[in-house]
Design a protein around this nucleic acid. Sequence first.
DNA 1: ATGGGATTGTGAAAATAATCACAAGGGAGA
DNA 2: TCTCCCTTGTGATTATTTTCACAATCCCAT
Lengths: 212, 212
Amino acid sequence: MADGLIAFPKATISRFPLYFRVLTDYNHQDIALVSSEEMAQKIGVTSSQIRKDFSYFGSLGIRGAGYDVTYLLDMIKEILGMDKKRRLAVIGAGKLGMALAGYSGLKQHGLEVAALFDTDRRKWAQGPGGLTVFPLTELAEQKEKLGMEIAVLTVPAVVAQTVAELAVKSEFKAIWNFAPVRLKVPSNIIVQYEDLVVGILTLSHHLARKFG
Amino acid sequence: MADGLIAFPKATISRFPLYFRVLTDYNHQDIALVSSEEMAQKIGVTSSQIRKDFSYFGSLGIRGAGYDVTYLLDMIKEILGMDKKRRLAVIGAGKLGMALAGYSGLKQHGLEVAALFDTDRRKWAQGPGGLTVFPLTELAEQKEKLGMEIAVLTVPAVVAQTVAELAVKSEFKAIWNFAPVRLKVPSNIIVQYEDLVVGILTLSHHLARKFG
DNA sequence: ATGGGATTGTGAAAATAATCACAAGGGAGA
DNA sequence: TCTCCCTTGTGATTATTTTCACAATCCCAT
Ligand SMILES: NC(=O)c1ccc[n+]([C@@H]2O[C@H](COP(=O)([O-])OP(=O)(O)OC[C@H]3O[C@@H](n4cnc5c(N)ncnc54)[C@H](O)[C@@H]3O)[C@@H](O)[C@H]2O)c1
Ligand SMILES: NC(=O)c1ccc[n+]([C@@H]2O[C@H](COP(=O)([O-])OP(=O)(O)OC[C@H]3O[C@@H](n4cnc5c(N)ncnc54)[C@H](O)[C@@H]3O)[C@@H](O)[C@H]2O)c1
């Protein structure tokens, strides 16, 4: 990390999305103040961990009272970079790609799927929610037109590397990759791996240890 | 952890699924021996970390040569508890539930979706791949009949807690939860949370720090 | 305006994890 | 069999993360 700003613990950053969500909840319920203990219960971490995490960003709370939900939410939005909306391109309009495109949880967090792309001409059409599936060849063009920044890879594993390279060439700055493959891309491209099999295999491991 | 076996570092356990997959790959390509360095490249971790992880289970490799793919795979299968097949019940036959049910990556790892469940009668039918969508009321009955152990929760967040309780009552031993909600279940139930929004928000955060 | 109860913010300590660096083998060819 | 080369296995070291514990201090009731 050679940026001018100080870096925060990775473990801390990975918890911020959880804080964001729970605070959004409180906000919807018109709760003005919450304690670290209250949040801790709901998220499943310790209260001291929450306070420590927040402390990296200064004194966000009110001693004796708790945290101001609206204020804290604004701070976290800024920290997570969510004051700015982001548009996504889903590449691979298959089962998973379609599910993600129709997932309301993304838009709730300022993330909007703006278009899908596929090589299969039978998919080229209006998708759910007025979304269009474009031929993959139009990726670069539509990226500019629609202002998309993040490429979501939901293509078969064998073509993931190739498609990733096309995304890089099309000047996407970040890739959210669901294919179970480690991508080789320039180091200035941000890649987030989402490997569902790891989760279920971890569960399977615990199951085996516990029950055999 | 009060079991009789020694516990391994959590971080180590979380990497075993990665090892499992890369070794399965080598196996398919009929590669007999691999070095830790070779695997490291492919997975994106350091070679010493791999060796350290394996060392908790004894000397699995051959000095000067590397690791025997087949042997190591067998060991890891045992460690992950994958010598035993597991059957899953997908609860919530919506967009995500259907995608998971049709996902070949699961079966490749000995995990089979045996049936789906939904409260919406319009979904009660033969799904893709000969899978049946049952009324939720038949959960306990079909669990026994089909020998399912893991409940996959792909229902809307608001009903996730209720459905989880039904799964517990139906004697599922583990829950793989995709709803963005922390579940309150007895401590003997294993819960694995799969929170996709965390991944994309983490990416969003990196994007904001890097480019603003 | 004062005191009591609550909760934050944070150094210090403890726990956990990653990295380093190299001795200890094992394999293969002469 | 001997030697050279390669890669493992692992103590020691360093880095990171979590937990602990309590002083600081803010709110509110009186
Ligand atoms: N289905 C799931 O639940 C699930 C879960 C985890 C991970 N994944 C991963 O996500 C990926 C997609 O899975 P899926 O189940 O949606 O598969 P799918 O077959 O339903 O969809 C893949 C889509 O990609 C398209 N495609 C193929 N080659 C392409 C290319 N070069 N460029 C653009 N599009 C192309 C296909 O036409 C198809 O529409 C796979 O890598 C899979 O391992 C899927
Ligand atoms: N779609 C995605 O890509 C995605 C990604 C991440 C997380 N999720 C989460 O997964 C869950 C499902 O998302 P989705 O997009 O598939 O929604 P969906 O609306 O397509 O599917 C939900 C299904 O659950 C069924 N259902 C409702 N109440 C039920 C009950 N009490 N018992 C059984 N079934 C019931 C509905 O009939 C529907 O078929 C949500 O919690 C969502 O937050 C979805």
